[in-house]
Design a protein around this nucleic acid. Structure first.
Ligand SMILES: [Mn+2]
Ligand SMILES: [Mn+2]
Ligand SMILES: [Zn+2]
Ligand SMILES: [Zn+2]
Lengths: 148, 148
DNA sequence: ATTGATATTGATAATGATTATCAATATACT
DNA sequence: AGTATATTGATAATCATTATCAATATCAAT
């Protein structure tokens, strides 16, 4: 089952309709790298068909999220960021506060410890978001030897 | 060194001035429980002195953050949330997606594992943010027995 | 205490991101 | 093809926050 089929199934299931715009936005999204903002997605879509309004892009990336094709990535501030969710497993982020470089990772020990926290407080897990901030190796080096 | 002294020190250090409004907003903030929004802080301040504008509240809670008296709490969406930072150690959040109940916790195993992740990728740690989502015990119970 | 340089304030406009509104149109069943 | 209704694009509205700016308060030096 590929992304288009997932969407078609999701739509049919609740009486929604497939449209030219919807499909185009999906294709644009699939062709972009992770951490896409609605604005950047709109720009990409606009190149393929300049008749598509940006409200439609906002509406549909949101729909894709409900359908399980996209998910909101960590964002500290600024516009919402989306990443692919279909066949893209959960992961957390390690971000450089200087240059913005982002590493995606999964750490077994952390995931296990998180389950223990849920258990301790009697909560039923539904998901989590974790972002580690720091200086990437390059920025750290530049930081320690400013103009040597 | 109490909060007021911290602020005074921070101000003097960079040629800024202490004002009536500034002090009032600080006192209001200190008198409120964690996870305060600028709007709620403004309401509290307004009761003490209705001549204080809300831009001033926005400006000063931001200043407190720079001064190390406040810090931004996790927020998924909606207005920015602040919590006390002076003599309030780092912690993470476990939130109920149904009723919004929030538990603050620190887990040694997670903190240790996070350091290992930093090391693995050669990043210099500067902080992190983690929020676990789920159903609190009450909401989970209500969810399993809707109207029994 | 008076002065003077300047940081601060309150009111309000502006911004940025997202959502709501709505008439026109496209879609998908029959 | 006909029909009910979901969708669209344009645009207005909303929400949280920041910028602008003239008037005022602060504070270190006289
Ligand atoms: Mn990611
Ligand atoms: Mn907290
Ligand atoms: Zn970097
Ligand atoms: Zn709950």
């Amino acid at each position: 089952m590929d992304e288009r089929q997932v969407l078609e199934h999701y739509l049919k299931e609740r009486g929604l309709k497939m449209t030219k715009a919807r499909l185009l936005i999906l294709e644009a999204f699939l062709g972009m790298e992770s951490h896409v903002t609605a604005e950047r997605l709109y720009e990409a879509v606009h190149k393929l068909d300049d008749g598509i309004g940006q409200a439609t892009v906002f509406r549909n990336i949101r729909l894709f999220t409900d359908a399980g094709l996209a998910r909101e990535a960590c964002r500290d501030d600024g516009p919402r960021q989306y990443e692919h969710a279909w066949r893209h497993a959960h992961h957390d982020h390690l971000s450089c506060i200087q240059c913005g470089a982002v590493i995606e990772f999964v750490d077994g020990a952390i995931e296990t410890a998180q389950q223990a926290v849920y258990k301790k407080y009697g909560y039923v897990p539904s998901g989590h978001r974790m972002e580690l901030f720091g200086l990437c190796p390059d920025c750290a080096a530049r930081h320690n030897s400013p103009q040597t």
